[in-house]
């Protein structure tokens, strides 16, 4: 049985289509990422999966139970962490955790082993009110509360947004630990680099799925040669590349510019033209496409498709 099966899931808010005809499956024990910017529809999709809103159309089941008709039963199996911190700010760390355990008819003790690696880090502060915690601590408490009833699936809506790179790395390490416990995890993020930590990812943009696959397969589907061009005067370099007929696309990318060339053009042409433009000794190397390069490519295709 699949952990999640979605078929033609659609959701409208008035005239706005937030989620547009999505179909996908998530296997049991999979760590599955939804990658996309704000407004892609990630939160709406996750709320549907968490049985919090009823989709306008389509059908979704978790472990064979329908999210609409089976929501009562399903809620025992779902751990949901919304994007906005939503624990009780006036309760202490320990009180919050006990509260969540109680409403799910369990105790902290019963499933302590599951949350231990995470909760242990905030346990020294268990008498502190949740509202007084730092961002990283809040995130750990929220995850502990979402886990305390030992759910079969964790639904994590942008758990790492606005969190610094150190805490983000730690958070993903925690998710890997939970995956080993057999828990299915769906997680959304706007950070493309985090995609590499998932078993499979779905790239989302404007309510639609642009691609679903393993991160490696998504990257290898890039399909053309990508070049990295670097020169200390980056802005001049970029403007010069934009003017060249041989260059199909050029985008700033970290300390260099990522460029693709039109059919038949070679990097030597570019180097020569840069020289003529007074930009000497630019380094041009072949680059490995990242998830973000693929995302950019797919976004452009989507735009073309919608314009047809």
């Amino acid at each position: 049985m699949k952990a999640i099966e979605a078929k033609n899931i659609t959701h409208h808010y008035g005239k706005i289509t937030a989620v547009d005809d999505l179909s996908f499956t998530v296997g049991e024990g999979e760590l599955f990422g939804f990658i996309g910017p704000d407004g892609a529809g990630k939160t709406t999709l996750f709320r549907i999966a968490a049985t919090l809103i009823i989709p306008s159309g389509g059908r979704m089941t978790l472990f064979g139970l329908n999210v609409v008709s089976g929501f009562r039963e399903l809620r025992n199996h779902i751990g949901y962490m919304p994007g906005r911190f939503s624990l009780y700010q006036d309760l202490t760390v320990e009180e919050n955790l006990r509260f969540y355990a109680t409403i799910f008819g369990t105790t902290i003790k019963e499933n302590y082993y599951l949350i231990e690696p995470i909760y242990r880090q905030i346990e020294p502060f268990k008498k502190r009110r949740a509202g007084q915690l730092s961002g990283g601590m809040k995130q750990k408490l929220a995850l502990s509360c979402a886990l305390i009833h030992k759910p079969r699936v964790l639904i994590l809506d942008e758990p790492t947004t606005g969190v610094d790179a150190v805490s983000r790395t730690e958070f993903w390490e925690m998710l890997e630990g939970l995956k080993e416990e057999g828990i299915t995890i769906i997680v959304s993020t706007p950070y493309m680099d985090e995609a590499l930590r998932c078993d499979r990812i779905a790239l989302m943009q404007q309510g639609r799925l642009m691609g679903i696959d393993t991160p490696a397969a998504i990257r290898s589907a890039y399909g053309r040669k990508l070049w990295s061009v670097s020169h200390p005067e980056r802005y001049r370099l970029l403007l010069a590349l934009r003017k060249m007929p041989q260059v199909a696309a050029s985008e700033p990318f970290g300390d260099s510019v990522h460029m693709t060339l039109h059919e038949g053009a070679i990097p030597e042409d570019v180097r020569r033209m840069l020289d003529e433009a007074g930009i000497h000794d630019a380094a041009i190397n072949e680059a490995t496409p990242g998830i973000e390069d693929v995302f950019l490519e797919l976004m452009k295709k989507e735009v073309r498709r919608s314009e047809v």
């Binding site: 910017p37 704000d38 892609a40 947004t161 706007p190 943009q205 985008e251 990318f253 976004m299």
Partner: peptide, 8 residues
């Protein structure tokens, strides 16, 4: 939170 095209 902005998309990669806008970020660029």
């Amino acid at each position: 939170g902005v998309d990669p095209v806008t970020r660029r």
